[in-house]
Design a protein around this nucleic acid. Structure first.
Length: 221
DNA sequence: TTGTGTTTTACGACCTCC
DNA sequence: GGAGGTCGTAAAACACAA
């Protein structure tokens, strides 16, 4: 039985330092398990569970600290380091190996959680940005609509209200989903000077609604 | 207390690497 | 084939509200 020597060592240590190895429970105090599970090889090796000499439980703070320090140095555990740690801590090398396995699993979970939070934050920021841009689009559509109405009003005034044909057809509706741009407006070439009421802005020039109106008015008058 | 949720320890099954 | 890894989970220990 491979664990006998370790168990005897721990029994000896726990006898000398009863406060240190709290995970070692003397045979008589072993509680029956709440749930059944397959018998482990160790339990089988030691005979029936009730004959198992020790139930090794929670590690002491000192043991935990040393294991944490060791884990901080290197997450993997080579054989020599495992044996050295086990000897230093008075633990079964198997316990050290299991502790590292579990510690790696916790570390991985934590890392995944952090990555998830990062992604969630960046997603939230994108959503906020999208909302902001959508409201900006709405605002611009409204400005465009107002500008178009203003142009139409001025055109009618210039014409003296004689023509029922509008020089600029109302192509913008705030309710529409399409988002027209200023460059989309075409100057019609059907002869009448007053029909060409919308002048194209210079290329690569951005104007908001008010600027665009002033630009058009300056050209007209 | 006790019921319940969370954390820790331990293990089996399976996989990969040498 | 064996050592050591991950993954999933049982069970004990622990924390804490009711």
């Amino acid at each position: 039985m491979s664990h006998t020597v370790d168990d005897q060592n721990m029994a000896f240590i726990s006898h000398l330092y009863p406060d240190v190895y709290t995970q070692i429970v003397p045979q008589g105090e072993v509680k029956p398990p709440k749930r059944r599970r397959k018998k482990s090889k160790r339990a089988v090796a030691a005979g029936d569970g009730s004959n198992c000499l020790f139930r090794k439980r929670k590690l002491t703070d000192e043991q935990m600290n040393m294991l944490e320090v060791s884990f901080g140095d290197e997450h993997k555990l080579e054989s020599m380091r495992k044996d050295k740690l086990a000897a230093e801590l008075g633990l079964d090398p198997r316990q050290v190996a299991v502790w590292f396995q579990n510690r790696r699993a916790r570390w991985k979970n934590k890392r995944l959680e952090e990555e998830y939070n990062k992604l969630k934050n960046s997603h939230d920021n994108v959503v906020v940005d999208k909302c902001r841009l959508e409201s900006e689009v709405l605002q611009l559509k409204e400005q465009l609509y107002d500008a178009e109405r203003e142009i139409q009003r001025l055109a009618e005034r210039v014409e003296g209200g004689s023509s029922s044909n509008s020089p600029v057809s109302s192509s913008v509706s705030v309710e529409h989903n399409e988002t027209p741009f200023f460059g989309d407006y075409k100057v019609e070439e059907d002869g009448d000077d007053y029909d060409n009421m919308v002048y194209p802005v210079p290329e690569n020039t951005y104007m908001d609604g008010a600027e665009w109106i002033n630009y058009q008015l300056n050209i007209i008058f």
